[in-house]
């Protein structure tokens, strides 16, 4: 397990010292949230109704935007190959990198999102459920993003391809994430079971993504 912590620390240090990563993602997030009311008009009631979904979509896009840096740099300078020579299996390396990506991109965005919700007239009662669902859901987003990054790591024009590959897989997390963060607007309250399904999605991703991403990375490292 020490390999895991070492890798997570290394990635976090790199993200922190290089700068840009977290800050850019946050800036992108802010831009999307600001552009939205400009695009659909400043109707407060409408904004309040779509705020949770809009924040989730902004989170999705921001996480996806930072996906290609999960493996790209390490693949290009050869350190990924060095890591595979070490004692840790490729699957563990992928879990570490996805976790570091979550700490440096998903988590800050999930914490900032409810605060930015004020720009969208978010119902104050939703701040806690939205933040909680986003913190959990962004784990699944980071894991799936690392799968997309692994599948396209050796490609020069991988960015658009990652979106095409990964956005369909984001659909379940998006659906249950939004319904977990909106307490009953109409009909019975399904936020609690939705949160459980969201956790299930995270757990399934935690098991399947490292295997699939490792298979994809091995095709590039051969």
């Amino acid at each position: 397990m020490s390999v895991l912590t070492v890798l997570v620390r290394r990635d976090l240090l790199l993200a922190w010292r290089q700068g840009g990563g977290t800050g850019t993602a946050l800036g992108f997030f802010l831009t999307v949230v600001v552009l939205l009311p400009l695009g659909i008009g400043p109707d407060q009631i409408l904004l309040q109704r779509i705020a949770p979904g809009a924040l989730w979509i902004a989170l999705l896009l921001s996480v996806l935007l930072s996906a290609d840096r999960i493996f790209q740099a390490d693949y290009e300078d050869g350190s990924l190959e060095q890591m595979t020579l070490g004692p840790a299996s490729l699957e563990i390396i992928i879990i570490a990198k996805a976790f570091a990506h979550w700490l440096s991109a998903g988590l800050p965005l999930a914490i900032a999102a409810p605060a930015l919700g004020f720009l969208l007239n978010l119902d104050p009662g939703l701040i806690l459920p939205l933040g909680g669902a986003m913190i959990i859901g962004s784990l699944a987003l980071s894991l799936l993003a690392s799968l997309g990054a692994a599948a396209t790591v050796g490609l020069r024009r991988g960015g658009m391809l990652v979106s095409l590959l990964i956005l369909p897989l984001y659909v379940p997390a998006l659906i249950f994430g939004v319904s977990a963060s909106t307490a009953s607007q109409a009909g019975p309250d399904i936020s609690a079971p939705s949160l459980l399904i969201l956790i299930a999605i995270v757990l399934v991703a935690l098991v399947t993504v490292p295997l699939a991403a490792a298979a994809a990375l091995r095709a590039y490292l051969r």
Binding site: L147, A151, L165, P168, T208, A212, A215, A216, R218, A219
Partner: peptide, 10 residues
Amino acid sequence: RIAAVVALVG
């Protein structure tokens, strides 16, 4: 290889 992984995940 990559396409096979993508197909199986999907």
